[in-house]
Design a protein around this nucleic acid. Structure first.
Lengths: 221, 221
DNA sequence: ATATACTTTTAGATTAGCCTAAAAAATGTA
DNA sequence: TACATTTTTTAGGCTAATCTAAAAGTATAT
């Protein structure tokens, strides 16, 4: 496929995200709102993108992304998320500071750069927000997220996200040494209050209240 | 200063490089040639850049870069060279593979990103081609390059470039463990053939023929 | 010093990406 | 069903960055 311009990539990414969440055609207005542009501009761009076969559309009936378009969008998303991992893991940014920079970096064109970066970062599967990183073929590991408190003793999993994203909670997690990407193994669950004993990164064990476990989202490992 | 567009940054960078090498006004044709565009396009852009005070120009008499323009250009160059160090040192690219990618990366806007990157790379002073990296204020460490064979016993220096850039020579250097960035200390110079004993990175000593030393460019350390 | 050659600028188009205003189509409702 | 509202498209314009062709200015060389 030919490469798209920066603007085209941003439209395609928006369409991908919207169609992933809604599962049906994406409306002109929805795209305009997401990109804070005007519906008229969206109509123009839709025509261009459909000429390039990354979407299909029927006038007045919204847009569908093609397989080719999906693959392209997932590659941009892959780059975005890998750069986010780089910024957090290597350059010590906080996970909530990296989005804007990654929005720029995701448009750098060089497959070799991205495969080297992937290797340098040790092939991460999730970005700092806990979102999965597609592989080179646009395949997302689709392990479902579960709430930690719903799992039973003996389960191993990976912390990928928090429900409560308030400062207080995040500071607490920081203090006890839990963050996105931490590997957890549940060694004990206490029936009477739902609290649990977990081992973090095969190193330190800790006790976690049910209230905390309710707010931790994990995938099986 | 306001930020420039990608095209404006590329014009300004070209003008900086041309005026650094020629020391007088830069001609429209020279800029057009360097950027492989047409003189007519250059005339347009020159007007715009001079309105933005990064260059001055008099019709039909070429362009001069202003202090402000120089600072802006040096910041772009700083970013380019830091990214090159990243690509070579961290992602294991060869020094001759990184230019195109750095051309894209140099336009990412984020001062914090660059200062973090600088720190992550341990504040390098030269890029993989041996060119100096300007600091945040656009100051270039201006240590002059010298030919290794011209130096005397006891001198410490940093290998920054090669005169001969042929594959044969570069392979040879690779084999004996010399590359850009290697710290050298001359421990002995043999009068009769100009060969010398050098210590590389405070580790391994080796003998270097005059012919090799003639092709190694260094700065004092 | 003046004709010729070269350089630079201007004039006028083109394309990408965006806009506003108005027309057309779809949708919701009495 | 017919009217009103909302959504979407079209028409026409704007700016940035480029181009070609032609005009204007500078330099050279006999």
């Amino acid at each position: 496929m030919s490469t798209l311009s920066l603007a085209e990539e941003n439209y395609l990414k928006a369409i991908y995200h919207l169609s992933a969440s809604s599962k049906k055609q994406v409306s002109t207005n929805a795209i305009a709102e997401r990109l804070t542009t005007k519906p008229a501009s969206v109509s123009d761009m839709i025509r261009k993108l459909s000429e390039k076969k990354v979407i299909t559309y029927v006038k007045y009936q919204g847009v569908n992304i093609t397989d080719e378009g999906k693959k392209y969008a997932l590659n941009v998303i892959r780059k975005h998320r890998l750069w986010e991992v780089f910024l957090v893991d290597k350059l010590k940014f906080n996970w909530d500071e990296v989005h804007e920079i990654a929005e720029q970096l995701e448009h750098i064109h060089s497959p070799l750069l991205i495969s080297r970066l992937d290797e340098f970062l040790d092939f991460p599967k999730f970005d700092p927000h806990g979102d999965p990183i597609p592989n080179e073929d646009g395949v997302i590991s689709t392990r479902p997220r579960m709430v930690l408190s719903g799992l039973s003793s003996g389960t191993s999993c990976l912390l990928v996200s928090m429900k409560d994203t308030g400062v207080v909670f995040l500071n607490y997690l920081d203090k006890i040494g839990l963050k996105i990407g931490t590997k957890l193994k549940i060694t004990e669950v206490y029936e009477f209050d739902g609290s649990m004993e977990v081992e973090a990164d095969q190193e330190n064990s800790m006790t976690i209240s049910k209230q905390v476990a309710d707010n931790l989202l994990v995938v099986s490992e």
